[in-house]
Amino acid sequence: MDITEIEARIAIGETKARYCLTLDTKDWAGYADCFTEDLEMDTRPSGGILTVGRDETVAIVRRSVETAATCHHVHSPIMTFNMDGSADVIWAMQDRVVWGPDRRFEPGLTGHTGFGHYHEHYRKCADGRWRIARQKLTRLYSDNHYEGGITKPAPNPAAPA
Rank of each mutant, 00 (worst) to 15 (best):
residue 113 T to F: 06
residue 69 A to V: 15
residue 73 H to C: 10
residue 116 G to T: 00
residue 96 R to D: 11
residue 56 E to A: 14
residue 120 E to I: 11
residue 91 W to N: 07
residue 101 P to C: 01
residue 67 T to R: 15
residue 86 S to H: 12
residue 100 G to I: 00
residue 109 L to T: 08
residue 121 H to G: 08
residue 117 H to K: 10
residue 68 A to Q: 14
residue 113 T to G: 06
residue 59 A to D: 13
residue 124 K to R: 15
residue 97 V to D: 04
residue 65 V to T: 11
residue 69 A to C: 09
residue 63 R to F: 02
residue 103 R to F: 01
residue 85 G to W: 11
residue 60 I to S: 12
residue 119 H to P: 02
residue 62 R to T: 05
residue 60 I to R: 09
residue 92 A to Q: 08
residue 63 R to L: 07
residue 102 D to P: 14
residue 123 R to N: 14
residue 64 S to N: 06
residue 124 K to F: 13
residue 98 V to S: 06
residue 62 R to I: 00
residue 110 T to G: 15
residue 72 H to D: 11
residue 104 R to P: 13
residue 83 M to W: 00
residue 89 V to H: 14
residue 67 T to G: 15
residue 64 S to G: 12
residue 60 I to D: 04
residue 113 T to Q: 03
residue 108 G to H: 02
residue 96 R to V: 05
residue 73 H to S: 11
residue 119 H to Q: 02
residue 109 L to K: 01
residue 125 C to A: 13
residue 121 H to E: 03
residue 125 C to M: 06
residue 120 E to N: 15
residue 118 Y to M: 04
residue 106 E to I: 04
residue 92 A to H: 07
residue 101 P to S: 00
residue 68 A to C: 09
residue 55 D to G: 05
residue 65 V to W: 12
residue 66 E to K: 02
residue 66 E to D: 13
residue 118 Y to E: 00
residue 80 T to H: 14
residue 109 L to I: 02
